[in-house]
């Protein structure tokens, strides 16, 4: 779990926040409402999830409850891989 959180944070900083400071992102910050990720960004995120964790993300799983913060993503990955 802690490991996933680090992976997710690294991915978000590398691909969405770039050279922002570490504290620019709390683990429960909404990606969507903060404009960190938009609808195209969601696809980038899904690509990464499928490759990094060898999971398949169904269309109906593309909802904020699964994807909209570091913590929600981490919980989603745990559910999909356990």
């Amino acid at each position: 779990m802690a490991d996933n959180t680090t992976k997710i944070r690294t991915f978000i900083f590398d691909n969405f926040l770039f050279d922002a400071e570490e504290d620019a992102l709390e683990n429960d910050t909404s990606f969507l409402e903060q404009g960190i990720i938009d609808s195209t960004g969601v696809l980038e995120l899904v690509d990464w999830l499928e490759e990094e964790f060898a999971i398949s993300v169904a269309d109906e799983e593309l909802v904020p409850e699964n994807l909209d913060s570091v913590n929600l993503l981490s919980a989603y990955i745990t559910r999909k891989t356990s």
């Binding site: 909404s30 990606f31 969507l32 409402e33 903060q34 404009g35 938009d38 609808s39 969601v42 593309l62 909802v63 904020p64 409850e65 909209d68």
Partner: peptide, 12 residues
């Protein structure tokens, strides 16, 4: 997706 869209709309 209404919920995703609602979040994105808020940011704009």
């Amino acid at each position: 997706n209404p919920a995703l869209m609602q979040g994105t709309q808020k940011a704009i």
